[in-house]
Design a protein around this nucleic acid. Structure first.
Lengths: 296, 296
DNA sequence: GGCCGGTTATTAATATAATTCATAATGTTC
DNA sequence: GAACATTATGAATTATATTAATAACCGGCC
């Protein structure tokens, strides 16, 4: 039984996507090539690697075993490549970094400027998106920075820093509606990422169980920047990470509606696959972030 | 950089043997093929894998890194193959077992009879030789059973059982030479694997520092069986593992010259490469040996 | 030095294998 | 059952690996 790395790579991609065509696209070859490769691999392994029940594709028992081996193999080789690059005094490779749109575009890029200049051996590519976990699991991203709590197995989680949320509006809006306590929010327009206002959960949880307002008017806006702009226009109150509105608060265009309210803070984490946490470039990047990020 | 398993295998074999021609023989291809493969690998790795100083071949820094990765990779794949075989209900593969000539040919084969019959899914091939460690490190053997103390790194050592040594001679020889105490051996012919009688070290160490005989006549015989036969012929006294002469002692053709002397016992160990200790077939074999071997 | 036995590198020809294109087969959805 | 999307297959093409032959190299030796 003589395995072949190319075939294993094809198998690995198919296993991750459960889709031959997509795997082929990822590898920049035709679907036919992937099909041939996997078929040949199944012949050398003397057994089916995928269960093809109807059109549903899933890994067979053998396939699962081989998949785990592939992780080991590819990560070992990746690490070796990095080590060899370093030994030859060449670049440490690239990192595909994922982050949420708002945080990534405004903050992360700024924070990483120093790193990218001081360590040009590491090429960083950014992808800002709301969906981060799945691409990470499919190896389309190497590291993601997210304040969500992901718990997929085989994931390594590095706490980076905390973010603080604030309730914002323009001064005039607060005055006109007579907003003094959280309960008053039930009477005015509330801006939220989602219609069900789960976005405000963190705010509501910070209030005593009895005193939580029932929002009568929730306006959905799918982007944080839109919420901020709407608040600036005096359309309603928003609930956003403080770093997003630092400037607006400073020059008084927006006010922190409840400055004395102690809100729960969200943690920002970096996630990476556990097997790749040993990569030098990953360590370097995260070390930098841990050391050089100001508290938001 | 797209690595290739075949090239890695070639590199790995060259690294183990430090000899392209030998690696080629091991892989059943021409030396040219190996040379091409390694050259191509060096091109994809963008660096020399071997240092070719004069005709001396050695691993470069990059080569060392890649070598370790190869160990990880090949052992991971080997384990996956075994797992997949098991999942498909097929054989667990083969073990190349090494042991010392005397012990292996007379005892080990006997002990393993039951295992080979009860577990036909595991094919065991034997190699009896005095040199065991080097073939193990080169992956020519999978497990070796040896009473020597090997300390190479990355080796896993499993204690199996103890062997007891005895001083033997024919009764008539003992009587004629008037051998009563260890000191008397200085006067008669001593049979030893080596001319310097290091072979007898274990015996001498068991005596009080003052009372150790100085052998005046050492006859070298390179095989234990030869020593036993020589002793049977009344040529001298021998020093051999008890299991080798169990029968001769029982039917009184030989006598235990110093039955009350408490000799140090040698331990028998199984050695295998640490990375492969997780292989199911290895574990099964060693478990069997640990459970089913009588004390020698 | 010059020759020998051992090695590794190189070249061009050959053999082998992988990729594609085109298309068939299969399954899903409405 | 037609339209769509998927995966499998076969033959032609392309790319790659292997070989045989041979050159180049090294170290030891007379």
């Amino acid at each position: 039984m003589s395995l072949d790395l190319y075939q294993l790579r094809a198998f690995f991609n198919v296993a991750q996507t459960l889709n031959f065509s997509e795997a082929a696209r990822k590898m920049c070859v035709t679907q036919s090539a992937v099909s041939h490769a996997v078929a040949k691999l199944e012949r050398s392994a003397k057994g089916e690697l995928f269960k093809r029940t109807g059109s549903r594709l899933s890994l067979s028992e053998s396939g699962k075993i081989l998949y785990r081996a592939c992780e080991t193999v590819f990560y070992a080789l990746e690490k070796a490549e990095e080590g060899m690059s370093a030994a030859e005094g060449r670049s440490l490779g690239a990192i595909k970094l994922g982050a949420t749109v708002e945080f990534g575009t405004t903050q992360l890029v700024k924070f990483l400027k120093g790193f990218m200049e001081s360590d040009p051996g590491i090429q960083i590519d950014f992808r800002f998106d709301h969906e981060l976990l799945r691409p990470l699991l499919k190896d389309e991203l190497d590291i993601i920075i997210d304040c969500k709590n992901h718990n997929a197995e085989g994931l390594e989680k590095t706490p980076l820093f905390r973010e603080e949320y604030v309730v914002i509006a323009v001064r005039e809006f607060v005055k006109r509606r007579g907003i003094r306590s959280p309960g008053d929010l039930s009477r005015c327009r509330v801006l939220s990422i989602d219609k069900s206002a789960k976005w405000w959960g963190n705010f509501l949880n910070a209030l005593p169980a009895g005193g939580r307002p029932e929002f009568s008017s929730v306006t959905e806006m799918t982007h944080i920047r839109a919420i901020i702009n709407a608040a600036l226009e005096g359309l309603g109150v928003g609930f956003v990470p403080r770093y997003c509105v630092e400037k607006e608060l400073q020059d008084k265009r927006l006010v922190n509606v409840f400055p004395h309210l102690k809100l729960l803070e969200d943690n920002f984490y970096a996630y990476q696959k556990a097997g790749r946490a040993g990569l030098g470039r990953h360590r370097k990047l995260l070390d930098y972030l841990k050391k050089n990020i100001p508290r938001l």
